Amino acid sequence: TGYYDVLGVKPDASDNELKKAYRKMALKFHPDKNPDGAEQFKQISQAYEVLSDEKKRQIYDQ
């Protein structure tokens, strides 16, 4: 599964769309709200870390 799929956004998503999707998913799977969501929360955080950084995103998109 790709990072875009993890966040539920298209590859041409804007920074604002990425942030909005990340916040929505992070709230849904945060371990405090969803004890079984810890692994998914890590994936969401990693996806956002890469896609929100312009240089990392360019490398990922290659």
Rank of each mutant, 00 (worst) to 15 (best):
T1Q: 13
Y4L: 01
D5I: 06
D5S: 09
D5F: 08
D5N: 09
V6P: 00
V6C: 09
L7S: 00
L7N: 01
G8D: 06
G8I: 01
G8P: 00
G8T: 01
G8C: 09
V9S: 02
V9M: 02
V9I: 10
K10A: 12
P11S: 09
P11A: 07
P11I: 08
P11V: 08
D12A: 04
D12L: 05
A13S: 04
A13K: 01
S14T: 13
S14R: 05
D15L: 15
D15N: 14
D15A: 15
D15T: 14
N16T: 13
E17M: 05
E17L: 03
E17S: 02
E17H: 04
E17N: 00
E17Y: 01
E17V: 05
E17W: 01
L18R: 00
K19P: 00
K19Q: 13
A21F: 00
Y22S: 02
R23V: 13
R23S: 10
R23L: 15
R23M: 15
M25F: 05
M25Q: 10
M25I: 08
M25S: 03
M25R: 04
A26S: 08
A26H: 15
A26G: 06
L27N: 14
L27A: 15
K28I: 12
K28T: 09
K28P: 07
F29A: 04
F29D: 02
F29L: 02
H30T: 04
H30N: 10
H30L: 07
P31Y: 06
P31W: 02
P31F: 06
D32M: 10
D32C: 14
D32Y: 06
N34S: 08
N34R: 05
N34D: 10
N34I: 05
N34P: 02
N34V: 06
P35S: 06
P35F: 06
P35L: 06
D36V: 06
D36I: 06
A38V: 09
E39S: 08
E39R: 06
Q40A: 09
Q40Y: 13
Q40V: 09
Q40K: 14
F41A: 05
F41S: 02
F41T: 01
F41Q: 02
K42P: 07
K42A: 12
Q43H: 08
I44T: 01
S45A: 12
Q46G: 06
Q46W: 10
Q46T: 10
Q46F: 09
A47V: 08
A47D: 03
A47Y: 01
A47W: 06
Y48V: 01
Y48C: 05
E49C: 14
V50Q: 03
V50C: 09
V50G: 02
V50W: 07
V50R: 02
L51F: 02
L51W: 00
S52L: 11
S52G: 08
S52D: 03
S52T: 08
D53E: 04
D53R: 08
E54R: 15
E54P: 15
E54T: 14
K56M: 12
K56P: 03
R57I: 03
R57C: 05
R57L: 03
Q58H: 10
Q58T: 09
Q58L: 12
I59E: 14
I59P: 02
I59K: 12
Y60S: 05
Y60L: 02
D61R: 02
D61L: 06
Q62A: 14
Q62W: 07
